[in-house]
């Protein structure tokens, strides 16, 4: 009898406590139930789920909540671009806003170890911002890629790697969120339209003679590209060639005529890999002639 008592009493109290707490939680779940707008879940599903924050919100869920509750615009996701903006608009039952174009990041520097001249040997922390604080980095060019991979660390999808002292974006992986653009202390990463094929791989705003001293490959503002372009799509502004993507047709004239080989095309990048050497450049120059 005593043994029975010693077993039954604890079973009663502990079991009872568990039942009471369980019941309490069940009741509380009913009382404290929070209605969640089902559109939030639908929008969250429609979004890419990269949680990159390029829309200006803390993540895809925060953006979905903002769309439903605060009436945020439906086209803020640069990663998903047009299809996602349309999907979000149809969930919300509103007309699609002017859709934003899908973009990709491009590092506007070609100054690999082979070409860019150094002013000192940097041996500090592996971080571009730290290096940039020391007289703007180890490269002579004030607009050169420092190449320590701060952008690669910022990339949420691992699309950036540093090749031969210059960061390079793998455009097949890039989602165009722009986090690398914000992370670069040199501001030499730009977003260009996703389907654009050409870009100027230099940001040097120095005069041509000075750029020659800094780097073996930089843009010297000779304006040859400006002259050969039949579509008025490339202009030299502040000693650097700039492509107007609304006008560029991808005819490749500028790439062929550029004496410094600083204008890149997707084809040329695929041919040479992510960074180039003087030997490879010689092969390309010979092929041109």
């Amino acid at each position: 009898m005593n043994i029975l008592k010693e077993i039954l009493i604890p079973v009663f109290w502990v079991g009872g406590l568990g039942t009471v707490l369980g019941g309490l939680l069940a009741v509380a779940a009913k009382i404290f139930a929070v209605k969640v707008d089902e559109r939030v879940a639908l929008i969250e599903e429609a979004l890419p789920g990269a949680n990159c924050g390029a829309c200006g919100y803390a993540g895809c869920k925060a953006y979905a909540v903002a769309v439903v509750e605060d009436g945020a615009k439906t086209n803020l996701c640069p990663v998903g671009g047009k299809p996602v903006a349309e999907a979000v608009s149809s969930i919300m039952g509103v007309a699609a806003d002017d859709n934003i174009e899908r973009m990709r990041a491009q590092v506007m520097c070609s100054g690999s170890h082979e070409f860019a001249h150094k002013k000192y040997a940097y041996a500090g922390a592996e971080d571009c911002i730290c290096a940039a604080n020391l007289d703007g980095g180890d490269k002579l060019c004030p607009n050169g890629c420092i190449g320590l991979g701060t952008c690669a660390a910022a990339c949420p999808v691992g699309a950036i790697k540093v090749c031969d002292g210059v960061a390079a974006v793998d455009y097949t992986l890039c989602i165009g969120c722009g986090l690398c653009v914000a992370s670069c202390p040199k501001q030499i990463i730009k977003l260009i339209p996703y389907d654009s094929t050409h870009w100027v791989g230099c940001m040097s705003r120095e005069k041509g003679a000075l750029t020659r001293k800094h780097c073996g490959i930089g843009c010297i503002a000779c304006r040859i590209c400006e002259k050969v372009c039949a579509f008025d799509a490339i202009k030299v502004i502040d000693n650097i060639a700039k492509i107007d993507y609304a006008k560029c047709t991808g005819c490749n004239m500028c790439v062929e005529k550029c004496p410094r080989n600083i204008i890149w095309s997707v084809e040329r990048q695929e041919l040479l890999g992510l960074s180039i050497t003087k030997d490879e450049l010689a092969v390309v120059s010979a092929a041109k002639k």
Binding site: P10, V14, L17, G22, L24, L25, A28, F32
Partner: peptide
Amino acid sequence: FSTVVFILIIASLVQLIEMFMHKY
């Protein structure tokens, strides 16, 4: 039985607080 009972109580308490905070 204090260890078992305390775990039970803490777990329920956390759940309860979570629901309460979510609402209010």
